[in-house]
């Protein structure tokens, strides 16, 4: 457990001191959301209707953008090999990385989401539902992302291929994520979203560990 906590601390420290990655992601999230009105027109009624979808797409894209940070630096400087042979199982290491990744790549987006909600003319009940659905759903996105990053870590330009692998797998998250905000059966969608998140977070560390150890030997 000490090793797990040390790993978590290391990841957080690296992310926070490593030159503004967190702020860049938040900026990307807000800018993607803010760019939509320029494409579809500043009609407030239309924007309010599609706002949940825009927020989810922005979060999805921002989290894809942050994926390369997850394993690639460790792979390049060789510490991933050391972590593989460490006393702490690789799956536990990846679980720590996953938690850290969610804290630095998803939580700031959720904190910034009120700003986007205001820009997109979202009303207050929708806003609260969106906040809960982002909190419940982003762990699943982070978990799928970790698997995609692990699969592509051995490829030199894997940053390009990981998104096209992850996007189809993330479709259920987007469906239930936006469904839990707008659909008539939003409570059911929220439960499905939570189930998906729990399952993905539980299984992703093992799948990612398997992919990394297959790629390294």
């Amino acid at each position: 457990m000490t090793a797990f906590r040390a790993m978590l601390r290391r990841e957080l420290r690296l992310a926070l001191r490593g030159g503004g990655d967190v702020l860049t992601l938040v900026l990307f999230f807000v800018i993607v959301g803010a760019i939509v009105p320029f494409a579809v027109g500043p009609d407030r009624a239309l924007l309010a209707r599609i706002a949940p979808g825009i927020v989810w797409i922005s979060a999805f894209l921002a989290m894809l953008l942050g994926l390369d940070r997850l394993f690639r630096p460790d792979h390049e400087d060789g510490s991933l090999i050391l972590l593989r042979h460490a006393h702490l199982p690789l799956s536990a290491t990846i679980a720590a990385k996953l938690i850290a990744h969610w804290l630095v790549a998803a939580l700031p987006l959720i904190v910034a989401s009120p700003f986007l909600a205001m820009l997109l003319a979202m009303d207050e009940p929708t806003f609260w539902r969106m906040l809960v659905s982002l909190l419940v759903g982003t762990p699943a996105l982070a978990a799928f992302g970790a698997v995609g990053a692990a699969v592509t870590v051995a490829i030199r330009r894997g940053g390009l291929i990981a998104p096209i692998l992850i996007a189809p797998l993330s479709i259920p998250v987007l469906i239930f994520g936006t469904g839990s905000i707008t659909a008539p059966q939003s409570a059911a969608a929220m439960l499905f979203l939570a189930a998906l998140s729990l399952m993905a977070v539980a299984l992703a560390p093992f799948a990612a560990a398997l992919a990394i150890s297959s790629a390294e030997d």
């Binding site: 698997v147 699969v151 189809p168 259920p172 398997l210 297959s214 790629a215």
Partner: peptide, 21 residues
Amino acid sequence: RVIAVFTLIGAVNIPIIKFSV
């Protein structure tokens, strides 16, 4: 071996995608 891992993840996911869609 890496693609085998991904293929199996996809195999687990396809029913979920089907259901959600």
